[in-house]
């Protein structure tokens, strides 16, 4: 009797797991098929792109498309540009958001609640409302045609990340702070030597998402550095490929797009575990 029950349960468990795998596969297909289609198109020669019936696996593997994409979009130089901007944004974002998050989470200063609500409500503002006045500001300051408008905002604590920091830091027990204070640490030392090492997942998450935000940004480079080709970011360079007067070379365009998101993919893979932990900071718990 017991044996029957055990094998019965085992069979149910196995079917449950198999069913789970099947469902995962089924839902995964629409996730990756378009990306595979992108890869397939990137490898085709010109005739194959719109061939009917469509070739899922290209008849000709034209790896040269990638080389062509690198040349046409001036990939290497713009990769350097975009990387430079992204790194500076990451540093700035982490430093400023931790500072402000720490202040909101720890210090009881006058107006703390008010500032918190102001920061939250600024997340609600449609981007369009602020574009023109901010543009005029940068022109007046002489920063048009530079990367400053792309970098400086990250150093001034964007609301979403500030919110995240505050939530996360609220969960760190105050006893750490107090112990350090007794030992004579300044607030700044508490932040840098105790809080930050404890917040590695949050740092990783913010680094990855800031990197993503900066890498994918199209509108701001469009507004500020469009006139100086040597300052273009990858987003501009890739978009240029898709807007010729003489028709679009879809295969080269797709190849360029793939090269465009490959770095983010790599970064994400490397920091995946930390990223998941950091996401967990939204609920003040970890992710297994």
């Amino acid at each position: 009797m017991k044996n029957e029950m055990r094998t019965g349960r085992k069979r149910r468990e196995i079917t449950a797991i198999v069913l789970r795998y099947v469902m995962i596969f089924v839902f995964m297909l629409p996730m990756i098929l378009p990306v595979l289609w992108m890869l397939s198109t990137a490898l085709k020669d010109n005739a194959g792109v719109f061939a009917t019936p469509p070739q899922f696996i290209p008849k000709v593997f034209q790896w040269g498309n990638f080389k062509e994409a690198v040349i046409q979009s001036k990939y290497l130089q713009r990769f350097g540009n975009t990387l430079f901007i992204a790194v500076l944004c990451i540093i700035g974002s982490i430093l400023s958001n931790f500072m402000v998050g720490y202040a909101l989470a720890r210090f009881k200063f006058k107006g703390r609640k008010m500032w918190f609500y102001l920061i939250i409500s600024s997340m609600m503002i449609p981007g369009m409302t602020t574009v023109m006045p901010v543009f005029r500001f940068w022109v007046a300051v002489g920063a048009y045609g530079t990367w400053l408008p792309l970098i400086l905002p990250a150093w001034l604590a964007g609301p979403f990340n500030t919110f995240l920091c505050k939530q996360f830091l609220s969960t760190i027990p105050r006893s750490y702070d107090e112990a350090a204070k007794i030992d004579g640490a300044t607030y700044f030392q508490i932040l840098s030597r105790i809080i930050m090492p404890l917040s590695k997942p949050l740092i990783a998450y913010m680094a990855v998402s800031t990197f993503q935000g900066s890498w994918n940004d199209y509108m701001n480079p469009l507004l500020y550095v469009i006139s100086k080709q040597d300052k273009w970011t990858l987003a501009l360079g890739i978009a240029r490929l898709g807007s010729g007067t003489f028709g679009i070379e879809w295969n080269v365009y797709m190849a360029a797009d793939i090269l465009y998101f490959l770095p983010i993919l790599v970064v994400f893979f490397i920091f995946q575990d930390y990223f998941m932990e950091g996401l967990g900071s939204m609920t003040a718990a970890g992710v297994k």
């Binding site: 001036k74 130089q77 350097g80 430079f84 500076l88 540093i91 700035g92 920063a143 045609g145 530079t146 990367w147 400053l148 970098i151 400086l152 100086k228 080709q229 040597d230 300052k231």
Partner: peptide
């Protein structure tokens, strides 16, 4: 970082850029 970013800001005034 501040130094680097201010250099970048001055970069457009004919500084040493890597260009095509």
């Amino acid at each position: 970082a501040l130094v680097v970013s201010s250099l970048a800001a001055c970069g457009n005034k004919g500084g040493a850029d890597t260009t095509t």
